[in-house]
Design a protein around this nucleic acid. Structure first.
Lengths: 110, 110
DNA sequence: CATTCGCTTGGCTATATTGCCAAATAGGCA
DNA sequence: TGCCTATTTGGCAATATAGCCAAGCGAATG
């Protein structure tokens, strides 16, 4: 049942995994606004440039962004605009979590 | 720029991380059809029941599913129907990847 | 052609994740 | 009560991920 479609889920999980990191989520959101060079993202994130470069490489491997070398700079841009939709859903998960937390507190008070 | 909103991205990354595993993706897809008990999912996945239970716990922690204990069985159900939308986007990423791969082969042939 | 700049890659350590087995827990039933 | 069933939890080893530093590399510039 699952084993036959294992590969199917593995490839999909890889894409989600690439998104499942705070710095990478930030990059994706930033790239929605337009292309950015590695140095700009590094500046914004405040980590070592090698760290940022590796995160970008993860997103690229996953097919989420593409790079464009111009001069001695590399510009990355988002490849899949629908990623924005993800966030709407993630938000609703977080809202439910918040409600839970609130009701937990209410119960605790009783 | 990023540091101030770091927490914001961390909580969102956690939700995505919970989804970023083949077995857990399968479970979510299966739970879209309706509630399932641990034993059913275990049967379908073909892993140790303790492994399945831990995966379910990850999804639960992330606020994606809820459990309902009835008798000596535990039934899980999806909490956030919009998760389906995720997959549509993931599919388009995979389609682009496939196109890339195809064009790589074409270039290689030349 | 030497140097600098922007970026990537290798290497390393610290930490997190995965999945199994074994043990613990909880409900149902004889 | 004692046993069986369904599930969770603890513990462990294997593997993967993250982030830093250092080294490598191509493009631009003097």
């Amino acid at each position: 049942m699952y084993q036959q479609r294992k590969k199917h889920f593995e490839v999909r999980a890889k894409v989600l995994k690439a998104l499942a990191h705070p710095s990478r989520l930030f990059m994706v959101e930033e790239l929605e606004k337009g292309e950015r060079c590695v140095c700009e993202l590094t500046e914004m994130i405040g980590a070592d440039i090698s760290t940022v470069s590796k995160h970008l490489s993860v997103l690229k491997q996953a097919g989420l962004i593409i790079d464009d070398k111009r001069g001695n700079q590399v510009f990355y841009q988002l490849r899949v605009p629908c990623i924005l939709n993800f966030f709407g859903c993630v938000e609703s998960v977080l809202e439910l979590q918040a409600e839970d937390h609130a009701s937990m507190l209410t119960i605790a008070k009783k």
